[in-house]
Nucleic acid binder design. Sequence first.
DNA 1: TATTGTTATACTCTATAACTATA
DNA 2: TATAGTTATAGAGTATAACAATA
Lengths: 152, 152
Amino acid sequence: MSETKPAQPNANVDLLDDQLGYHLRRLSVKVMADLSDALEPQKLTPADASILFVIGANAGMTQSEVGKALGIFRANMAPLVGRLVKRGFIERRTIDGRSQALKLTAAGAAACRQAKAAVREHEDRLFGSLPAVAKRKLVKEIRALWQRDDVP
Amino acid sequence: MSETKPAQPNANVDLLDDQLGYHLRRLSVKVMADLSDALEPQKLTPADASILFVIGANAGMTQSEVGKALGIFRANMAPLVGRLVKRGFIERRTIDGRSQALKLTAAGAAACRQAKAAVREHEDRLFGSLPAVAKRKLVKEIRALWQRDDVP
DNA sequence: TATTGTTATACTCTATAACTATA
DNA sequence: TATAGTTATAGAGTATAACAATA
């Protein structure tokens, strides 16, 4: 038997309903699922796409720097970047014996552009109903909450 | 070598910085990590705790109903509930040949109370700096975004 | 036929430890 | 000693398919 998506809540989730963390999680899951679908035609995961975006905007960054910018551990960057190199989207240039600068190839730049279009469409599909001002305010609030370093 | 948490972004993440979905994801990851730590003393995962909360507030719900309320697939509920039954936190009562009503045992109710205290403390640690009014507004906005059913 | 619970399986993402080699 | 990249490994969460038992 196949199964449809878990339905809307029709039950009392008690204390959870007042929890910002709970609702952030539920929304984030929905957003990531839609984003995965949006990138599926390109066979890119959300992590793949975010790496292309960062390298595209910062040619010459090292793998570690890209990981830091995105909150991805060094150990997890290795296979992600490795796949993108193997697919011909990223080129490595040796800086010194241990560091390598990353940049997009022509194919990578094209994939990056296409992914950006898909992401914009996805973002608009999910959040297009929000007035631009309200969305910018939300972005600012959410960003401030995760970028604070006073709470680990 | 051990490794510390990926640092704050100091690089241009380009289009990502305007994306609500990106910031929701970053914040959600941070929140879930802190919540996991908060529940670790009880050896409960966030999913475990959410199940205890829902059953605690809705004694007699079936496993499927709990899953629907939380957005957890039936197939994934089985091992989650199974573990909580094995630990003596949940009791099953047969409704008919295929459904079973769930309720908390005394130990489960105690664990639920303790988890609620941990969750409140965690939520306050992360979001306590927000004025109550602002937090309620955020909760309302985020909840509305994921509960909409006009966009899959 | 549809529903409940289950098992098996797969993939993404996050995370830690440990290794190599370079600096 | 510290850093960059890598490998191996683990765990949580999400997801699909398929099965048995039951309604």
